[in-house]
């Protein structure tokens, strides 16, 4: 045993052999995230090359235009681990619980909402659960064919955030229905999502995303075009309108949910910058996908601006459009898509 102990000392390992020589102690995030995709080989799954799963991964993950050899060197700027994620989101959810308590029990507000406010909530907030469920499906897809666990885990947390938002929307939908049972809260939303002309660009883009299977296009169209514009409309701009209509609770919840969006944007822009740093040709690939979705994004900007601005006195759709475009362009710059980046 003494000899065995001696041998143990000689070959004492500090971290995973696959991390190589980092020249520093790996972070907790790296320890639990590194190299956890075993499907990176020539034949992704341990099956014949022609089975469905292998054909799908080859076509939509390996044979795409975006070429990055070192996704395992990518790091999530927020360095989320499971433990950190549930801690972070428990705090955010406790905050929302407090808001609900404050606005429901200490100074009830739903009963005093104006008809303008109710119209705004029924048109801009409650139908959102369909859109956000679409975003949840897209984040899950980005997870499942990501080339590295560093990317996949981030996408998983994004998908979970989207479920958080669906459930908070559902919660508010029910509260509004109880306070205003004749307004169709909880029953009108599907019709609005499927038929309201101002929601159609969002629905069309969501459905088109759901048939976009190439991983690079799915990631970029979701996280650099459709989702950031929609989140800007239905969280940030919506909060402004809600505040102006004294729907303070929904404004505050939207503000809080937008923190998730900001994290998703840090993650997606970092992923794009990583891809561009790995190979400058990737900048054109990413641009190509943004351009392919430009028209869809523009249609969402125009419709979304109208959708929120119609509910607020003094809010001009053109100005909202300008803000949306400006934020969208900033996001593209953050992703490394300008020539001087």
């Amino acid at each position: 045993m003494a000899q065995a102990a001696g041998n143990r000392r000689e070959r004492r390992r500090k971290t995973w052999s696959s991390l190589g020589d980092l020249g520093r102690k790996p972070t907790e995030y790296e320890v639990v995230t590194h190299g956890m995709n075993h499907t990176a080989g020539e034949t992704p799954l341990e099956m014949g090359p022609d089975v469905h799963g292998n054909v799908w991964l080859k076509k939509y993950r390996d044979d795409i235009a975006l070429k990055v050899d070192n996704w395992d060197e990518f790091r999530d700027p927020d360095q989320l681990t499971y433990g950190k994620y549930v801690r972070l989101q428990d705090e955010q959810e406790a905050y929302v619980d407090n808001l609900l308590e404050e606005y429901t029990e200490r100074r009830p507000s739903d009963e005093t909402l104006s008809s303008a406010a109710l119209a705004c909530l029924g048109s801009c907030l409650t139908p959102g659960r369909y859109l956000v469920h679409g975003q949840q499906m897209m984040a899950a897809y980005i997870q499942q064919i990501a080339a590295s666990s560093y990317v996949a885990n981030g996408a998983s947390f994004q998908a979970a955030d989207q479920l958080r938002r669906v459930q908070r929307i559902a919660y508010r939908t029910k509260q509004l229905d109880l306070a205003h049972p004749t307004h169709g809260f909880g029953s009108n939303e599907r019709g609005i999502w499927e038929s309201d002309p101002l929601w159609q660009p969002m629905r069309e883009a969501t459905e088109r995303l759901l048939v976009t299977f190439a991983w690079d296009e799915a990631l970029i169209a979701t996280n650099l075009v459709v989702k950031p514009i929609c989140d800007d409309i239905f969280l940030r701009q919506f909060a402004r309108v809600a505040r102006s209509l004294d729907a303070g609770l929904d404004a505050l919840i939207a503000d809080n949910l937008y923190r998730d969006t900001e994290r998703h944007q840090r993650f997606a822009t970092a992923a794009c910058r990583h891809a561009i740093a790995a190979d400058r040709a990737n900048r054109d690939v990413i641009w190509g996908h943004v351009e392919a979705w430009q028209e869809a994004g523009e249609a969402i900007v125009v419709a979304g601006a109208k959708l929120v601005a119609q509910h607020a006195d003094g809010m001009v759709a053109g100005e909202v459009e300008a803000e949306l475009r400006s934020a969208w362009q900033q996001l593209q710059r953050d992703a490394g898509l300008t020539h001087d980046a």
Binding site: L100, E101, T104, E105, V166, K174, Q175, W193, E207, L210
Partner: peptide, 28 residues
């Protein structure tokens, strides 16, 4: 107005399917 229990709002949260019209649902 009271705070809600999970089962008060749960059915709404899981009612998130819709009829596709821009793409073929079978393709999605």
């Amino acid at each position: 107005m009271a705070l809600l229990n999970r089962d008060d709002w749960y059915d709404i949260a899981r009612d998130v399917d819709w009829s596709f019209s821009y793409v073929d649902r079978d393709e999605a």
